[in-house]
């Protein structure tokens, strides 16, 4: 019983502390100063309620072992995993940003004992990417949606990158905003992914580390 009483007293104290500032400020008879802090340009994968998705994924279709080169496909961004760009910085002029995607390693299994490439450097081959593996990213197949109220926040200031077979370490452009875009919040879904897997790649589960970079440019 005593424990319950102590708990209630502690909770009432916490609630009291939370409420006191509001009570005090209500009694101040002076000009009220309201500061709106500027936000920062950022990218994240959020769900339909704009909560951070704890473990975002971009799974590829399953493939069976094959003696031939084969392609698997996937999608980056969905209704429940929206690839957001949030630019609340509100600078007066000159702001532009790009959202790019780059791989930081090869497709590897757990333990990195098996791997294949995302950026096949082989030039002459019957089917591009079949010698070592190549990933093609297609943002132009995606859908851009704005998630903000102002008239300046429109898809008209955004262009999608074209379909790109990854080459070297060159990042793939997903979205570009025009200079002068001050406040923008929106997302892209259904970015197409297509990976050529080399012939006779051993059966295993493979992952590809990639970095999404939003750059104030």
């Amino acid at each position: 019983m005593n424990n319950i009483k102590r708990t209630i007293i502690a909770l009432l104290l916490v609630a009291g502390v939370m409420l006191v500032p509001a009570t005090v400020s209500a009694q101040v008879n002076s000009n009220v100063t309201q500061t709106i802090n500027t936000g920062t340009l950022t990218t994240a994968i959020l769900d339909g309620s704009r909560n951070v998705v704890a473990s975002p994924s971009a799974a590829m279709t399953a493939a069976n072992f094959s003696f031939n080169c084969q392609a698997v496909t996937g999608t980056l961004g969905s209704a429940s995993q929206r690839l957001y760009v949030i630019n609340p910085s509100g600078t007066t002029a000159g702001q532009t940003w790009t959202l790019t995607l780059a791989a930081t390693g090869n497709w590897e299994n757990t333990g990195a004992t098996r791997s294949y490439s995302y950026n096949d450097p082989t030039v002459a081959e019957a089917t591009a990417g079949c010698a070592n593996g190549q990933l093609t990213v297609n943002p132009s197949a995606g859908t851009v949606t704005t998630d903000c109220a102002s008239t300046a926040c429109t898809t008209a200031v955004i262009t999608k990158g074209g379909s790109t077979a990854m080459s070297g370490v060159t990042p793939v452009t997903i979205l570009t905003s025009a200079v002068g875009t001050t406040v923008w919040r929106g997302y892209i879904t259904n970015i197409g992914l297509s990976q050529q897997i080399p012939a006779e790649q051993p059966a295993d589960s493979y992952t590809l580390p990639m970095t999404l970079t939003v750059t104030a440019a």
């Binding site: 950022t42 994968i45 799974a59 992914l193 992952t207 590809l208 990639m210 970095t211």
Partner: peptide
């Protein structure tokens, strides 16, 4: 946030100036 998938693309995020 980094995805923990065992099969597919593992994403990490950064901002740059």
């Amino acid at each position: 946030t980094e995805s923990t998938t065992q099969n597919g693309v593992v994403l990490s995020f950064r901002s740059a100036i």
